[in-house]
Design a protein around this nucleic acid. Sequence first.
DNA 1: GGGTTTACTTACACCGTGAAAGGAGAAAAG
DNA 2: CTTTTCTCCTTTCACGGTGTAAGTAAACCC
Lengths: 142, 142
Amino acid sequence: MANQAIDEIDLRILHALLDNALLTHKEIGENVHLSGQAVGARIRKLQDLGVIEGYTLRWNPEKIGLHIHAFLTVFIYANQSHQAFRNFVQLTESVMEAHRVGGEGCYWLRIRTNDSSELNKLLEEVLRYGNYRLSISIENVK
Amino acid sequence: MANQAIDEIDLRILHALLDNALLTHKEIGENVHLSGQAVGARIRKLQDLGVIEGYTLRWNPEKIGLHIHAFLTVFIYANQSHQAFRNFVQLTESVMEAHRVGGEGCYWLRIRTNDSSELNKLLEEVLRYGNYRLSISIENVK
DNA sequence: GGGTTTACTTACACCGTGAAAGGAGAAAAG
DNA sequence: CTTTTCTCCTTTCACGGTGTAAGTAAACCC
């Protein structure tokens, strides 16, 4: 597998694994008309290329008590250190995902907390670094 | 495994799998001081409880050409059908994730496109349903 | 104390996976 | 046109991870 280009079959394998990473290579192979070993070789290629970074779970945080799911757009105060905010983000467990963004705001955060009082506590901490706009997920549509 | 309560060990197993779903039960067991089979039984419990919904990939969309990663907060026009917008969301490949939200806006969307012209095209379509605020990810901080 | 329940460990068979070897088909060179 | 080379595939085989079944230890109840 020296040709490192990604073809249509690779993408079909990728999407199959995104849907269910426990599919056997043989099962995937039946869909793309390849032997299981050929599929395995292509998966290894996708890993080497960095397309596939690892394997993880699809899970339901609500089931372990994380009932609040919120999105936060943060506007860091002028003159405020971005590094301090970044450290805060890294150290705070409730921040599940964080991006530096352009457009609306400076940072975008995905927050999960057990309840609204925890969320409120976090929002107060965020106010040390900047203002924010908050949206709370009511329903996962997609 | 009739006791369906989630204990500290279950959470450690969950976090281990979130980090790397390919860990063998035995490897996890060495960390939590259980046999591989006992770990397997607990994982099955987490699946039955709906905590673990499935297995998927951590991957890098940029590597297959999806260079634009944007967050969209949509404000549906008054009198506009929400169902039409939801259909649009389901049918549009560039929409990777969508939530009904309270607070800022009506919906929150995660968008990935190959380039800015594709993004622009999508934004025009969104304008059929509502206004929006756009943030574009510059760096994945966490 | 005997009986029951719960959650674990050990033993074992199945099968998914990666490695190695061999083959088909296309492209390039003579 | 034939030969060589390269790429990517299939087949074969051994290893090892997983689920099942059986056995064990501890806690609880009567």
